[in-house]
């Protein structure tokens, strides 16, 4: 199958593989240890999937904001994203 039209790069492929692995891990986690939705600081019911979604979406905005204020590289932004995701999983 020729996928050259999709203009793959090593970096983007790694990015997608990581997201795919995260989804697989989350699925296995959900099967092994089913969970109930809980209400966190946002006062809304969230499941682990919701928290993953919020982490990813928020991280995208954090990276864009980092690019806007400090420019590339965005390693600093990624560190912020990591702590943001931890906070989302802990408190939201």
């Amino acid at each position: 199958m020729d996928l050259s039209w999709m203009a793959w790069t090593k970096e983007t492929a790694t990015f997608f593989i990581l997201i795919f692995i995260t989804l697989v891990i989350m699925t296995i986690w959900a099967v092994k240890k089913p969970e109930m939705p809980r209400v966190g600081i946002l006062r809304i019911e969230t499941t682990r999937g919701d928290r993953l979604f919020l982490s990813l979406l928020g991280s995208a905005f954090i990276c864009i904001a980092w690019l806007g204020f400090f420019g590339a590289p965005i390693y600093g932004g990624l560190v912020v994203c990591f702590f943001y995701a931890l906070a989302v999983f802990r408190w939201v």
């Binding site: 999709m6 203009a7 793959w8 790069t9 983007t12």
Partner: peptide
Amino acid sequence: MTVINYSVQDTFGNNVFSWVGL
């Protein structure tokens, strides 16, 4: 996914791409 791939590269057509990062 294709759009994400495009967004980190530059092209002058002919399906030839070069990496530009962010």
